[in-house]
């Protein structure tokens, strides 16, 4: 049984169909990238998985249980770091736990140190760089009790160098804590470098065009970014995306 199953989701607003028969799954502790052009209905899909809006038809199952319209079952990290500016980093990181119940300050401090944010526990988000804020908001997701993490283009606002560092950091944290991750991006390289599986979405109405299983062994080194097979993959996926 898969961890998250998206079954034949359709969503239309009036005559405008946004999602058309979207079906895919995420296994336990798997890293899945959702690749699609901007405006392909990814955020609508996220709203449905997060339970904020209802699909026109189809179902979302988590651990075999239907979670259509049920909030709080997944942990979500938006595009911008979305830390609350009036909370210190420590309080921000604990927010996910606070909503569902207990604060575990000890573990939070540990994670903050692990993310290289030691000394910033009592700082406010505006005192941190973009990459640091993004790391803090990712810690918030890891600390939240939900076992599935949705990442919505988390690195799109960062520059190339910071992004690569963040990708490596994300992989190392993920291999340690083993959560299921659904990662949305429109960057092909990023998807290949990070994911176990890539799901390519077509543009409106969004539907699953193709699924690729990425064979690169873990832990992955940034050296593979320049290897021939990596470029082959990039080419294949690029061609797939170009075909309409």
């Amino acid at each position: 049984m898969s961890h998250l199953e998206i079954q034949q989701i359709n969503k239309s607003f009036g005559v405008n169909t946004v999602l058309n028969d979207v079906t895919f799954s995420v296994e336990e502790a798997e890293f899945v990238a959702l690749l699609g052009p901007s405006g392909s209905g990814k955020s609508t899909l996220f709203r449905i998985i997060g339970g904020i809006s209802q699909p026109s038809s189809g179902s979302v199952n988590l651990n075999g249980e239907n979670i259509n319209g049920k909030r709080g079952s997944i942990s979500y990290t938006p595009q911008t770091s979305s830390l609350m500016p009036w909370r210190t980093i420590l309080d921000n990181v604990l927010l996910g736990q606070e909503i569902t119940g207990n604060r575990d300050v000890e573990k939070a401090l540990q994670m903050i140190e692990r993310a290289g944010l030691k000394g910033f526990e009592q700082s406010y988000p505006h005192e941190l760089s973009g990459g640091m804020q993004q790391r803090a908001s990712f810690i918030r997701s890891i600390l939240s009790p939900q076992s599935l993490i949705l990442l919505d283009e988390p690195f799109s606002a960062l520059d190339e160098f910071t992004r690569l560092d963040m990708q490596k950091w994300l992989l190392s944290i993920w291999s340690e804590y083993k959560r299921s991750i659904l990662f949305v991006t429109h960057n092909i390289e990023e998807a290949i470098f990070l994911a176990d599986r890539i799901i390519v979405l077509s543009s409106r109405p969004a539907t699953v065009k193709k699924e690729f299983t990425i064979p690169f062994a873990r832990p992955r080194d940034e050296a593979i970014l320049l290897s021939d097979s990596f470029l082959q993959w990039k080419k294949r996926i690029y061609q797939e995306m170009r075909e309409q």
Binding site: R71, S75, Y76, T77, P78, Q79, T80, S82, I99
Partner: peptide
């Protein structure tokens, strides 16, 4: 964005 986060988190 923050509102979105709070809703998704089940607040």
């Amino acid at each position: 964005d923050l509102m979105h986060y709070m809703q998704m988190a089940g607040a």
